[in-house]
Amino acid sequence: MPSARTENGRSSKQRMLDSTVALLQQHGAGAVTVDAVLQHSGAPRGSVYHHFPGGRNALLLAAIRQAGDEMSGAIEAVCRTAAPREALERVASLWRHRLASSEFGAGCAIVAAVVDNRANLPEADHAIQEIFTRWQSAFADLLVRSGYDEGRAGRLATMTVAAVEGAVVLCRAQHSTEPLDDVLAELALLLDRA
């Protein structure tokens, strides 16, 4: 059975996923209710349980995976084609754009899933761990290809992901990209020294 399409071609399932990601980024997992997703997406009520028989939790888990795959794909692509400093700058540029275009209202959907409503969605733990591992692995692989030993590359990759994600939180709190710029400048110096 084909999905109902909107004028821009997105199915009701995709509209609901996109809306769930947006709600996660802007308001956290606690704000993601079936009603909020339906209102945000304009999808018909019956489509939730048709596409997501597990209801809210199935929708949240699918949205976490979608957001993780999108960001992982972007990070992996950058890390395959750029030197370490350029890769950092390109990832930071993605965040600057997201923060500015949302007037500092949208953060990381994956971080939101970790810190908000986690007890109500334990099945997301594995997906979240895999997503962060993909990000760290992409940076670690890039650093190994750039001459770092594996142990150091892994630690620097962990620090990079933690620092950038923390900077995004600070950017939202301060309504400024300055924290991200500061983190990027210090990470670049660290990579130069290493």
Results as ranks from 00 to 15, higher is better:
G30Y: 10
S102D: 03
P53V: 06
F52Q: 03
S19T: 11
A77D: 09
P122C: 01
F52Y: 12
E70Y: 10
P84Q: 04
R118D: 04
A153G: 04
S12F: 14
R193V: 14
R80V: 01
E103P: 04
A62D: 14
R45N: 14
M159R: 14
L17E: 10
Q136H: 12
W135L: 03
M16I: 07
L94K: 08
R65C: 14
M1F: 07
A140K: 12
V78R: 00
S72M: 02
I128G: 03
R56M: 03
V37F: 10
E86K: 00
A31I: 10
A173Q: 15
V114W: 12
L38C: 04
R172K: 15
H50V: 10
H40W: 08
Q14W: 08
A63H: 04
I75N: 00
L59M: 01
G166F: 02
G68A: 05
S3L: 06
L191E: 00
Q174W: 07
T158P: 01
E7K: 15
D116G: 05
R96I: 04
G46I: 06
A67Y: 02
T33A: 03
G42M: 06
R152M: 13
P44C: 03
V114L: 13
L94R: 15
W95I: 00
N117L: 10
E7F: 13
V169F: 12
Y49N: 11
F132T: 02
A83M: 05
G105L: 09
V168Q: 01
D181G: 01
R65Q: 15
L170T: 05
S102P: 08
M71K: 11
A31W: 05
L23E: 03
L121M: 15
V48K: 05
E130P: 07
C79F: 05
L61D: 10
A82R: 10
L187P: 01
P53S: 08
S176W: 06
R5I: 13
D18V: 03
Q39P: 05
G147Q: 04
D149C: 07
A163L: 03
D69Q: 15
G55F: 05
T6Y: 07
T133F: 13
A74V: 10
A194S: 14
V164I: 15
G73C: 07
S146A: 12
S146P: 02
P53K: 08
L38Q: 00
S47Q: 14
R155M: 10
D18C: 03
T160W: 00
V32P: 04
H27L: 15
L170G: 00
T33Q: 07
L190D: 07
T133L: 09
R134Q: 13
R65P: 12
E165T: 11
A67P: 02
Q66Y: 09
E130C: 14
A113R: 11
G73W: 03
S3Q: 12
A194V: 12
G54F: 02
R172G: 08
V161I: 15
G55P: 06
H27Q: 15
Q25N: 09
Y49Q: 10
H50Q: 12
D18L: 05
A113C: 12
G73E: 03
L23Y: 05
R80G: 05
N57C: 06
R172W: 01
A100Y: 09
L99C: 06
M1K: 08
N8T: 14
L156S: 00
E123Q: 11
E103S: 13
R155S: 07
